[in-house]
């Protein structure tokens, strides 16, 4: 009897190993931010394998290195901001946006004694101020867009001071070299916790649902195997539902993956809700973002980026999930969000 059980176990192990080996593989690059957490959830909960794709996750600390890895074919999927892939596309790289990961997330930090002066619901509080930022970061591009929308002249009404890293921006705010600084998660939470700085505004307050990290891949790979990318996005859609409905377990999964303080992850993800994770491609947001980059003047010529956005695969993935769960409220909300933003 024992032999039969052992044999059965051995055969089932062999079968699952064979199944995993047979699954199409995707090498996925991400950056260590809580808002990239849908990857960790889809992996941890087994959604990728259930949907029929074997995903290997690779962490990057630099967008330039990450995008270069996608370009060189070392990664099948990249998630490295919006600016970096757009710049590469404008220079001829054949990339296609197929989904999204992070929405919002940028914040303005200041010294506690300046908080009252820089608070309020009007961006005009920043007129005449010196703002530290990382050039062409999402915060830079979107903040300029928000200022423009508010009728503030970015060239005359305030001064931008550029720094190489978010850490350098935090340092400049701390020393009083600038009045305020634009940074992203978890830098502002760490600045609050470690240096006593304060968040004066989240950019989301002035510019709802703006795009941060987008999911993109080499166009040739997407066109050659759209089915695998659909399975990948289906798993992320399911992970999104888990993240929306299971906060405690989600925080634990993110903490394990990122090795960041659990409290910071909980605050950013569920308490302050500084950024949302959403696999929607946000086509309109990408197009807006490109226009804001052009408005900065760093890139001298326009390029039709729209032909590098594929919303069809995501829509097919969402439809397939809704077909299996027609009454699910989260998936219905995702459909409404998709219709509004694409």
């Amino acid at each position: 009897m024992k032999r039969i059980i052992a044999l059965t176990m051995f055969l089932s192990l062999l079968a699952s190993a064979a199944l995993a080996a047979a699954l199409p593989k995707l090498r996925v690059g991400y950056v260590p931010e809580p808002a990239h957490g849908l990857y960790f959830l889809a992996k941890e909960k087994g959604y990728f394998k259930e949907e029929g794709v074997d995903v290997e996750l690779f962490q990057f600390g630099s967008a330039a290195e990450g995008v270069a890895a996608v370009k060189a074919g070392k990664l099948d999927v990249g998630t490295f901001g919006t600016t970096a892939p757009l710049l590469f596309i404008s220079k001829g790289s054949e990339f296609t946006f197929i989904g999204g990961m992070m929405v919002g997330g940028q914040a303005i930090i200041t010294r506690p004694e300046r908080l009252a002066e820089l608070s309020g619901k009007d961006l005009k509080v920043y007129k005449g101020k010196k703002i530290g930022l990382v050039k062409l970061s999402t915060g830079d591009v979107i903040f300029r867009g928000a200022l423009k929308k508010a009728g503030i002249d970015v060239k005359k009404d305030l001064t931008f001071v550029e720094f190489g890293t978010a850490a350098a921006v935090v340092e400049a705010v701390k020393k009083g070299a600038v009045d305020a600084g634009l940074v992203w998660p978890p830098h502002f939470s760490l600045a609050e916790k470690n240096h006593g700085l304060k968040v004066s505004h989240y950019i989301e307050e002035f510019y709802p649902d703006y795009t941060c990290c987008r999911i993109f891949a080499h166009t040739g790979k997407v066109n050659a195997d759209p089915e695998t990318y659909k399975k990948f996005l289906t798993a992320l859609i399911r992970a999104y539902k888990f993240y929306k409905t299971n906060p405690d377990e989600t925080v634990k999964v993110y903490t394990k993956a990122l090795k960041i303080d659990e409290e910071i992850i909980r605050n950013e993800t569920y308490v302050n809700k500084v950024a949302d994770s959403n696999p929607d491609p946000l086509r309109k947001g990408i197009l807006d973002f490109w226009q804001h980059i052009l408005a900065t003047g760093y890139v001298p010529q326009d390029y039709p980026v729209d032909k590098h956005i594929n919303t069809v695969i995501y829509k097919q993935a969402l439809d397939s999930v809704i077909k299996k769960n027609p009454k699910d409220k989260v998936y219905q909300q995702m459909l409404t969000f998709y219709k509004k933003n694409n």
Partner: peptide
């Protein structure tokens, strides 16, 4: 026009 340092933690 350099790719911004996006996200090291």
């Amino acid at each position: 026009v350099c790719t911004p340092d996006c996200c090291p933690v």
